[in-house]
Computed example of a mutant assay.
Amino acid sequence: MIGQGLAELMIAFGGEKKIVGLAYLDKSYSKYEKQIRQLSVLTDMWPSKEAILELQPDLIISMSSAFQKERLGDISFWNERGISVLTGINYTIGRTIDGFFEDIENIGEALHIENKTNAFVTEKKARIKEIQNKAVQAKNKPKVLLVASGGRETYDYYSPSLCVIDEMIEGSSGGDIQISEETYAEMSVESILAVNPDKIIITEFQKSDSEAAKNKGLLNPSLRNVTAIKNKHVMVADYTNAIRGSLELVDLYEDVAKFVHPELYKGE
């Protein structure tokens, strides 16, 4: 098992006893931290081929980026040795909510626990549909800017191909601001002023100081004329969940919907 996010999925669906080795932990907060540390962790980084072969696994579950020459080599290397490979879909450009659910379904099929994984996916998709049905009642479509913050004076822009939260903004009847043809770009204060969003969502790693991240924008005098700042319409979302999804993906979807159109959720 290579990748903390994929390990979390296996643990959530009761498949941790099948994990003979774990590698490449992203060091972000995990509610499964205790279970992860009870597993055989080969390394926090990319494991060697020799370390994996010594475990004699039947299956390697990993992000696709692992299978490069300088890391684990081609998938064919493992197949030739009788070891199957399952790669995560939502770890490359082109991330989608459906891709996240497909990763769960693929793990369920590989581990023969489809009853658990399919039930989870069905329930979460139904909740998303409820959110979308409520969102169509909205009478306006506020402009929403999504940025990532690393504690610097600038922000990072991620295109829709790099994160799933854009789908949440769109599904919540928000106007997702796209500022660049590039997949990733650094945003200055001037570029935020130029697009003048009605609302801003800042992504930060879970368990970081979300209030500090929010206040960084709200208290920045250079941004005082931005509509979102003037109206204090700033939200902080967990980075991992916003970028590639997590088991709390639908909870974030609902939080985004309430942030974009709070008037639709009055009394709830």
Rank of each mutant, 00 (worst) to 15 (best):
2 I>E: 14
5 G>K: 09
12 A>M: 07
17 K>W: 00
19 I>A: 04
22 L>Y: 07
25 L>A: 04
29 Y>M: 01
32 Y>L: 10
33 E>W: 05
35 Q>E: 15
41 V>H: 00
43 T>C: 05
48 S>D: 06
49 K>A: 12
54 E>F: 03
59 L>M: 08
62 S>T: 03
65 S>V: 11
68 Q>N: 07
69 K>Y: 12
71 R>G: 11
71 R>P: 09
77 F>T: 03
81 R>D: 13
90 N>F: 02
100 F>C: 01
102 E>D: 08
106 N>I: 02
106 N>F: 03
106 N>D: 10
107 I>L: 15
109 E>S: 14
109 E>C: 03
110 A>D: 01
120 F>Q: 02
123 E>Y: 09
129 K>A: 13
132 Q>A: 12
135 A>T: 03
135 A>V: 06
136 V>R: 13
136 V>N: 05
140 N>I: 06
140 N>W: 06
158 Y>M: 10
162 L>Q: 11
163 C>E: 12
166 D>A: 09
166 D>E: 08
168 M>W: 09
169 I>V: 13
172 S>N: 01
177 I>G: 07
179 I>W: 09
179 I>A: 14
180 S>D: 14
184 Y>G: 08
184 Y>F: 14
185 A>H: 05
186 E>I: 11
187 M>N: 08
188 S>F: 09
191 S>D: 11
192 I>G: 04
197 P>C: 05
199 K>L: 15
200 I>V: 13
202 I>M: 03
203 T>I: 06
208 S>W: 11
209 D>Q: 09
210 S>Q: 14
211 E>M: 11
212 A>D: 06
215 N>I: 02
215 N>Y: 11
218 L>P: 07
219 L>F: 12
223 L>F: 10
223 L>K: 00
225 N>Y: 08
227 T>Q: 14
228 A>Y: 01
230 K>C: 01
231 N>F: 01
233 H>Y: 02
249 L>N: 01
250 V>E: 12
251 D>P: 06
252 L>W: 00
255 D>I: 05
256 V>G: 06
259 F>P: 00
259 F>D: 00
261 H>N: 04
